[in-house]
Amino acid sequence: MKQKWIRGVMTAVLLAGFGALATYRALPAGAESWQDCATGQFCLYDAAGGAGSSWAGGPTENTQTYPADRDDKAVSAWNNTDRWACVYEGASYGGAVQALRPGFRGDLAAASVDLTGKVSSHKAVKSKAGCWTGFERCPDGKLCLFQEPSGRGAGTVSTADNPDYGAAWDNRVLSVWNRTGRHVCFYRAPGWTSTWTADGRDFKAYVVLKGRSTTVPAPYAGTFSSHRLVAGTSEC
């Protein structure tokens, strides 16, 4: 049952709940490719100044994983939309991030964080602050775990108890959104056991109440090995 949960929930449900790759419109290459980014499109180029090969997506066409021919290839960008474009060093909105304002057109080296040749995912948001959170990927009614703060990075979806995370998720959870109708109790060891010591006190479980999202604080961050859902926190 342990391995079945890891394979079934942490792989198949993740792909279904978090969405598939966006479909891009191919753009013609060339040194004058700045002119090829239509209004309402976010365009990336594999050379400086909008030159080289290019590809584009609409403002709502977010993608969490680039195919090999685009991964770590972007050198310049034109955000020809009315939204902020967030580009990320890692897949699943992970790693370093650049927030490109509406209308931005230039080399990635000119932005606040230089991600030249490093971009692996992107999304469009209404405000700049949205670039630093990925909680919106969590479907209603699910418990979502993430490997970076604020719902960023690799994520997985669950609706069930899990007595053992296994290697893929053991000691990796840094943020949580509990969108289920129950509270969730996280434990330091498999089998819903062990304790943490904080401020001279021992704590059996770290609790995230129903409907709450959080970046897990120290000393709990990156230490979860199992969890279960409960009707009342006294059950933890």
Rank of each mutant, 00 (worst) to 15 (best):
residue 95 G to H: 02
residue 114 D to N: 15
residue 161 D to W: 06
residue 89 E to P: 06
residue 42 F to D: 04
residue 18 F to V: 09
residue 39 T to Q: 11
residue 163 P to Q: 09
residue 9 V to A: 13
residue 117 G to M: 08
residue 202 D to P: 04
residue 24 Y to V: 12
residue 10 M to V: 04
residue 64 Q to L: 15
residue 206 Y to S: 01
residue 180 T to R: 07
residue 59 P to V: 10
residue 8 G to P: 00
residue 52 G to I: 10
residue 157 V to H: 12
residue 56 A to P: 03
residue 122 H to G: 05
residue 83 R to L: 13
residue 226 S to Q: 08
residue 26 A to R: 10
residue 45 Y to R: 04
residue 131 C to N: 12
residue 19 G to D: 09
residue 123 K to V: 00
residue 16 A to M: 14
residue 112 S to T: 15
residue 235 E to W: 01
residue 100 L to Q: 12
residue 154 A to T: 08
residue 197 T to A: 07
residue 83 R to K: 15
residue 161 D to Y: 01
residue 206 Y to V: 06
residue 228 R to Y: 09
residue 110 A to V: 00
residue 91 A to P: 01
residue 152 R to V: 05
residue 114 D to R: 14
residue 138 C to N: 10
residue 149 P to G: 07
residue 59 P to A: 10
residue 216 V to L: 05
residue 204 K to G: 13
residue 111 A to R: 03
residue 10 M to F: 13
residue 170 D to W: 00
residue 216 V to F: 07
residue 204 K to E: 14
residue 183 H to R: 04
residue 109 A to W: 00
residue 169 W to F: 11
residue 224 F to G: 03
residue 36 D to A: 13
residue 72 D to Y: 04
residue 92 S to P: 00
residue 85 A to V: 15
residue 178 N to Y: 05
residue 62 N to D: 15
residue 207 V to C: 07
residue 117 G to L: 12
residue 52 G to L: 06
residue 73 K to I: 03
residue 110 A to H: 04
residue 148 E to S: 14
residue 230 V to Q: 05
residue 51 A to M: 05
residue 148 E to G: 05
residue 26 A to S: 12
residue 172 R to C: 02
residue 205 A to N: 10
residue 20 A to E: 09
residue 194 S to W: 04
residue 191 G to W: 06
residue 66 Y to Q: 03
residue 176 V to E: 07
residue 231 A to W: 03
residue 197 T to E: 14
residue 220 Y to R: 11
residue 28 P to M: 02
residue 144 C to G: 08
residue 226 S to G: 02
residue 231 A to F: 05
residue 127 S to M: 07
residue 37 C to F: 01
residue 160 A to Q: 14
residue 46 D to I: 04
residue 174 L to P: 00
residue 211 G to H: 11
residue 15 L to C: 01
residue 18 F to H: 10
residue 99 A to Y: 03
residue 112 S to W: 08
residue 96 A to E: 05
residue 95 G to S: 06
residue 172 R to M: 14
residue 144 C to R: 13
residue 39 T to E: 14
residue 42 F to G: 11
residue 86 C to N: 10
residue 147 Q to P: 00
